[in-house]
Nucleic acid binder design. Structure first.
Lengths: 253, 253
DNA sequence: CGAGTGTTTGATAATGTTCAAGAAGCGTGG
DNA sequence: CCACGCTTCTTGAACATTATCAAACACTCG
């Protein structure tokens, strides 16, 4: 774990982002905001590729990813890697519903990242306030994303899988206010995408090309734009997880 | 939901089986055993193919599958089916770590089944006794099985997947004392296996044949025998979930 | 025996992988 | 500013894996 101070100028912006994310689940009480504000100040930078959490680590320290992306992954003994899920900026991790839970997979940063502890959320699952609500929402979302991942890997074609994952990114980033006109940034390589989709990089590349040829997406460097959400959702049989759509509604101006 | 009385002669055996399963997590207190005994008496039969739990149903009624197999599954709009996980006799379902949880997928019986409620386990997650321990164990196992399923589907060949799933069956049934000399019964068709493995039935069939030709397994009707556990585990990079190996140790005479 | 369901087989096609090499983007240091 | 090395993306060709379709076979139950 290789962490260090965060550049001065950013801390304010990132702290406000963290507070906004928490508040998107419900309004924070004065004490809750106080606690969140204090712990967000402890934010730390992590390098690209840093392991934010090891497989088997005790799940008793809630954290929020304030900046950068990360993945939950497992590496097979022969080097093949499977990515289970992505963490996007604003995502909360390190939670577990049951006491003494252990991480079932490692969490690794995909880009330089900033992380802050949220002791407020530790063991908050069954508490009445907004903290409890946040934990519930986060766990519910995690579960439903994992189920969607199984469906993609088991029963969908490369084409459908890729679309489904892009739509998931879209909806999750939209809740964090990181989508503009269908466009967002994926700060990682096609290899990462492939390890999530269970495909070779070459095939991921060609499938992306197909989507571009069909004018369903545009890409420029790490920017992706989804051009026809309805069409894409139809092709991949995608439905937004209910735990997201609730929050999307509450975020809308 | 199509349920009815259980045949007279079986209730005693099934009740004892249920009690044995619960006790395999830790010794039950007098009150716990009392409660379990009472609710096991409410066991009900379910037909082949019956839906034991609908997708979206509130997860607040713990139940135990005393007899028969079931699956967690989701069906895509075009009819393709993905099976996420299997429930073997002795498995507990209907639990959720968070309050107000909803089932993310439907549970369907694969064979005629017998099910009993276990109110003892409702909201027992954070309680001190053995009931709490059971809930923790069950949830931990579910999670780790789902992760294994993702790895199989995403990064393993048909051959590896099939072996991995067979080993999982072996170890889970062994804990329930349903394996004899590497041999056990899978009371469902190759189509079910295929829907779990994300393969066509034809390909599942041919992969099974290959395993037989290589003398790694034997099959006779619904009986399967694994002939070389070490070899099989090596091929598929399989490790027994830790939540199972703990119980396997405690079950051993 | 006959209908129904599940398994096996063969032929063929689609989907996805591998390997190898070239092109494009990016940072670094001269 | 350019040259260089590095990584990522892209391309082509050959190959492997898995799916699809259709038919035959086997087993089970009435």
């Amino acid at each position: 774990m290789n962490r260090s101070r965060v550049q001065q100028g950013n801390t304010g912006r990132l702290r406000d982002f963290g507070l906004k994310v928490l508040a998107s689940h419900g309004s924070l009480s004065a004490e809750e905001e106080q606690s969140a504000r204090a712990s967000l100040a402890d934010m730390q930078a992590a390098e690209d590729d840093a392991e934010l959490m090891a497989e088997g680590a005790p799940l008793n320290q809630a954290q929020i990813l304030l900046e950068g992306w990360a993945v939950c992954q497992r590496v097979l003994s022969d080097g093949r890697r499977q990515i289970f899920s992505f963490l996007v900026p604003g995502d909360i991790f390190g939670l577990c519903a049951r006491p003494h839970g252990e991480a079932t997979c490692a969490i690794a940063a995909l880009s330089p990242a900033t992380v802050a502890p949220l002791p407020l959320l530790n063991d908050a699952l069954n508490t009445p306030g907004t903290a409890g609500r946040i934990v519930q929402d986060v766990l519910a979302l995690q579960e439903s994303l994992l189920i969607n991942q199984v469906v993609r890997l088991g029963r969908q074609s490369a084409y459908e899988r890729l679309i489904g994952l892009l739509l998931e990114f879209h909806d999750r980033l939209a809740v964090m206010d990181m989508v503009e006109d269908g466009s967002f940034i994926l700060p990682f390589t096609q290899e990462v995408l492939s390890d999530a989709l269970g495909l070779s990089t070459v095939h991921t590349n060609r499938t992306l090309q197909q989507l571009r040829r069909e004018h369903l997406i545009e890409t420029h460097l790490t920017h992706v734009r989804l051009l026809d959400l309805k069409m894409l959702a139809g092709i991949s049989d995608y439905r937004m997880p209910s735990s997201l759509s609730r929050r999307a509604a509450s975020t809308a101006k």
